[in-house]
Design a protein around this nucleic acid. Structure first.
Length: 488
RNA sequence: CGGGGUGUGGCUCAGCUUGGCAGAGCACCUGCUUUGGGAGCAGGGGGUCGCAGGUUCAAAUCCUGUCACCCCGACCA
């Protein structure tokens, strides 16, 4: 955008204070509001609709791969947590408890679920008897609670909405396949619908889910260079099966533990999408999930409005009939005001029609991602809009990909190099981004990097852009090539 | 949870140091003129000053407590 004249004074520029920008942008876009409960937000209609669209895209794919939705209770008895040692240790600090009900103290206190492995494990132990009962492929759309010390709208709140899949299988191989299949679905939805490029990979043991054998993730880079874990998929092995006694009689008449998986994505995807695509004017929404894809605004003198509306109204109907999420802004405000308003909200295309356009049998399409305006003939406007929506979706992904490449550093071999890199970037007001480096596999090396640079291991990518042979921290032989970054 | 900051009409904030009628801009309502990148004039409505105590003749202002939000750290999707 060339004529960058700070039209929107209410939004702090990204370069000045990224967190401030984020809060300003989501408030101006009317996605959420704070409530009187700490860390809990309202998802206002536009914010919630983003979630509904993500939900729809995911849900379709879950069902296509044989999963079904179910719903389990939000309250979990304390004793359930004790059954998996790592799990209880991992979640205990952030559980809210119900200790009283009906005016009486409860005999056993109940936690507001942070995730449902325990409740579901308990049920699976009753449902599964034979290999004929397997696999169990269930997903749940729910709210969960994690009393985090520091909250941030969408990205980290005390209560959030998510999806958690829980499956049980007869063999490790099948469970591992499921884990990978779901990770791939996450990649597909996030890249295709949200236009966010991600790295699929495996988490290091330190970053693993409490109670998992292996945790995998997709990781995305925000515009401030920090990382967000956009989805996770866990192979839980027999850990929960043993804790909850989930056994089945196999074909060979042997009693065996099932192998379970779990996988989740949350409303944090909304925050990621905003931080990946947004700019100083506010949100930039990918067309596939944008609540409003096209906003139509009539322009020109009021006395000529009637003539404009003769073209405007049929075009609105035609767009709507074509399945495009179109909205007409006929309010009394000036056009300039409306332009800014819808740009803040991130609507992909603005369609303007004024008297001059009517004379030329055309409409103006202004795209949010580039700021570019083009004139299209009225007759073919519906197709032009469809094509442009596709193009914007593609362009947004490509832009995000290019940004990620630009801020991914492959040539940093030692901790000293990394510190120097960070110092340099900070001096020039740049962002340190991500660093691909070797890791020997030692916990202590990972911790050392974290303590000295705040960079943590994001994941061990399945298809790294390069392979490293020495450990970033100790210089010893590298066991893995890992993405290091600061993260949300 | 530690350090720092902020809570005053819907929003952004001034007023607080030195207690004395609760303000401005934007937004909102009415009317007229306007409308191709945040229009103008005129009139109007709206606030128990985050909450709870205390000091005082009198508290947005002073004291104590508490809650929320923001920023920076330790924990996390």
């Amino acid at each position: 955008m060339k004529q960058e004249k700070a039209f929107v004074k209410e939004i702090t520029p990204q370069s000045k204070d990224f967190s401030r920008w984020y809060i300003d942008a989501i408030k101006k876009a009317d996605l959420m509001d704070y409530t009187s409960v700490r860390g809990c937000i309202v998802f206002k209609p536009d914010g919630y609709e983003l979630w509904e669209r993500i939900q729809a895209a995911m849900d379709q794919r879950f069902k296509d791969t044989g999963h079904r939705n179910a719903y389990f209770p939000m309250l979990i008895p304390e004793s359930f947590f004790q059954k998996e040692k790592e799990h209880v240790e991992g979640f205990n600090p952030e559980l809210p408890w119900v200790t009283e009900a009906g005016g009486e103290k409860l005999e056993e206190r109940l936690a507001l679920r942070p995730t449902s492995e325990t409740t579901i494990g308990q049920m699976y132990s009753q449902w599964i008897q034979s290999y004929r009962d397997l696999p169990v492929l269930i997903n749940q759309w729910a709210n969960v609670f994690r009393w985090e010390k520091r909250t941030m709208p969408f990205l980290r709140t005390s209560e959030f909405l998510w999806q958690e899949g829980h499956t049980a299988h007869a063999t490790e191989e099948e469970a591992r396949q499921e884990t990978m299949q779901m990770l791939e679905i996450y990649r597909e939805v996030v890249e295709q619908e949200l236009a966010i490029p991600v790295w699929k990979g495996k988490k290091t043991p330190r970053e693993r889910f409490a109670g998992a054998v292996d945790t995998y993730s997709i990781e995305a880079m925000m515009k401030d260079g920090k990382a967000v874990q956009a989805g996770t998929s866990h192979y839980l092995g027999e850990n929960f099966a043993k804790g909850f006694d989930i056994k089945f009689l196999d074909r060979d008449n042997q009693l065996k533990y099932v192998h379970t998986t779990s996988w989740g994505t949350s409303t944090r995807l909304i925050g990621s999408m905003i931080m990946v695509h947004g700019d100083d004017r506010g949100l930039v929404l990918p067309p596939r999930v944008a609540p409003t894809q096209v906003v139509m605004i009539p322009v020109g003198p009021a006395k000529l409005r009637e003539k404009v509306m003769e073209q405007f109204d049929p075009l609105f109907d035609a767009l709507k009939a074509a399945g495009i999420r179109v909205r007409a802004d006929l309010r009394e405000e000036t056009p300039g005001w409306k332009f800014n308003e819808w740009e803040m909200r991130g609507v992909p295309i603005r369609l303007e029609i004024g008297p001059r356009d009517v004379d030329k049998n055309q409409a103006i399409l202004a795209r949010r991602d580039t700021g570019e305006k083009v004139a299209v003939v009225l007759d073919g406007a519906v197709q032009s809009v469809k094509d442009l929506l596709d193009e914007i979706q593609q362009n947004m992904f490509q832009k995000a990909l290019a940004f990620r490449e630009q801020h991914s550093h492959l040539g940093i071999e030692t901790l000293e190099d990394l510190k120097e890199h960070i110092a340099n970037k900070e001096n020039e007001q740049g962002i340190p981004g991500w660093v691909l480096a070797g890791w020997c596999g030692e916990d202590s090396c990972e911790l050392k990097v974290k303590e000295e640079t705040k960079f943590t291991t994001r994941n061990i990518p399945f298809a790294p852009p390069a392979t490293k042979s020495t450990c970033l921290a100790c210089g010893g032989e590298a066991q893995d090539t890992v993405w290091f970054a600061r993260s949300y």
